[in-house]
Design a protein around this nucleic acid. Structure first.
Lengths: 212, 212
DNA sequence: TTTTGTATTAACCAAACGGTTAATGTGTAT
DNA sequence: ATACACATTAACCGTTTGGTTAATACAAAA
């Protein structure tokens, strides 16, 4: 019998070498960070010769950059979409918490990664989102300021409210290992806990700022 | 006979070599993380020969362990004190938010450090707080459960409320570089912003859970 | 003074690291 | 069949890394 496992046509599609590298590198950078990641480990995880990493991406820094500038752009683009949705503030907060939490779940390594690398190598990752972040901020600030001046919510410092909202969404994802330890979660329990938060966090926020 | 081996004769108080190493290592580990820190950089920052680090602490891992097991113990001990204070829940939350924020400000590197290292080297740091964290959790859970059953606050999942409270306190400290970038803070503006949160976060939480 | 235990240093080492190279395989158009 | 461009590999290279060592400085005890 011929072994046809290397036939890269249909059911075993040949993920291109470049894609294999990107996937392996993403996982290793996520687990170990930029400083802790090893080119050999990435090569092993991709099942490739280490020289291939340099053939496709020249240096470790450029590989790192290639992965995370793309990841960050995609992430912040979707964040911008969530902020720009056309809804009254309270419904927008409900919509935001639910969909931002889902976005974070699908990119669960990004929050801890950004927190970590912004401390260790801020110059290397700032530029990946510095442009996109301001439009998100100004839209959100404007929405809240308007809602306050229209008397739709209690008077609050819009910056404080923004930080509260993103803190409640991001922290449980970024601190997953800590929460899992403290609350003795298994994977399913943790995911259920986060799933519940999609509705509960919005209620928690709205309860606090709505006018009785 | 008194041990006077550390007699400091000159006007320049001789911080013992061990203390010099610990201080320099703490700063470097904080800036670079475990994987990114270099023994030579620690030695340079302490103004000592690199061999001294090994003479006092044998290995990089043991130096890392010596610093952060002590730091974490101190930090979680103070956290336990905050939880064990004898106050009704709502006042306890006010007291907690104010003093926990202050504790975090004084140990501002710890949150991002724990988030980062729990992702990269969980086994290496779990044991530093795994014992202390459960008593804190159970006391807090009990307080909230009692307050709910007494009808002092709205019925909430105590675990969700705990996560909300610590998220609102920890995130702005852990994500300082990101907040500083997004809200265009200088150091003073950032610290003022956090200072304001000592009162505002407690109000935000209590507004949400109090019975109208 | 001599001895003795500790602190400190420069020089050194093997392993691990990121990165390069030269040779070889492979598919394709001529 | 040949030629050419791209893909892949093992072996290699110079540097950096954590860690060791052997020699020495130094202060207290004998």
């Amino acid at each position: 019998m011929d072994n046809i496992k290397d036939l890269n046509t249909d059911e075993n599609p040949d993920k291109s070498t470049e894609k294999l590298i990107l996937k392996a590198a993403k996982d290793v950078f996520h687990r170990k960070g930029l400083a802790g990641a090893r080119m050999q480990e990435i090569a092993d995880e991709a099942g490739l010769n280490k020289a291939m990493l340099h053939y496709y991406f020249r240096t470790k820094d450029k590989l790192f950059e290639a992965i995370f500038s793309e990841e960050c752009c995609g992430f912040f683009d979707k964040l911008a979409d969530l902020i720009n949705v056309d809804l009254p503030l309270l419904e927008k907060i409900e919509h935001f918490v639910e969909n931002y939490t889902e976005l974070l779940l699908k990119n669960s390594y990004i929050p801890a990664f950004i927190i970590s690398e912004m401390h260790h190598n801020p110059e290397k990752i700032k530029h990946m989102f510095i442009d996109r972040i301001f439009s998100v901020k100004y839209k959100f600030l404007g929405d809240i300021t308007t809602a306050v001046s229209l008397g739709l919510i209690k008077p609050v410092d819009p910056r404080q409210l923004i930080v509260n909202i993103i803190a409640l969404c991001i922290f449980p994802i970024a601190a997953r290992p800590m929460l899992t330890l403290m609350l003795e979660f298994n994977d399913k329990e943790y995911l259920d806990f986060i799933e519940t938060r999609k509705k509960e966090v919005a209620k928690f926020i709205i309860n606090s700022i709505k006018i009785n």
